[in-house]
Amino acid sequence: MVVIEKIPGAELIRKVPGGGFFLTTSESFLKWGKASSLWPMTFGLACCAIEMIATGAPRFDIDRFGAGVFRASPRQCDVMVVAGTICVKMNDCIRRLYAQMPEPKYVIALGNCAISGGIFYYDTYSVTKGTESLGIKVDVFIPGCPPRPENLLFGLMKLQEKIRREKDAAR
């Protein structure tokens, strides 16, 4: 974002009573808006979902980052937080939910299970080994079993950073 100090005549603008305005490119404005209003999908699969709710609750308050509006319909969401173990029976459902989300869409894999199967990697016949094995591209991986709410907030900030750095704002 271009701040007022960097443009010529900044001093003049200051002098205008009540003055001060703000210049930016439409691109960074769009990115700023996108990054600060990420709406996640309420999509609790397993244990990690409880930590996701706890992050939404008062103590950690995910709303501070503009991501507190949990939507039940995938059509209103920007980010899918895959929170929990993905089981074989659930595979198609997750793919369909992801397909239903409008672009631009992002995916956070919360917890070891969503990353790779985690504690359920060995000896199970019914656990899918991670979100990526479903062919869904993940933007941010948050390890932990379960990750603490602070980790989720950190992951969210990383995602915002990523959005701000994106080349193509219209993605």
């Binding site: 074989v88 990697y121 060995y122 000896d123 199970t124 016949y125």
Partner: peptide, 15 residues
Amino acid sequence: YPLRKDYSNPQLIAK
């Protein structure tokens, strides 16, 4: 039938 002792499945990686 997964809980039979002779069950096998390519998904299943034994620890």
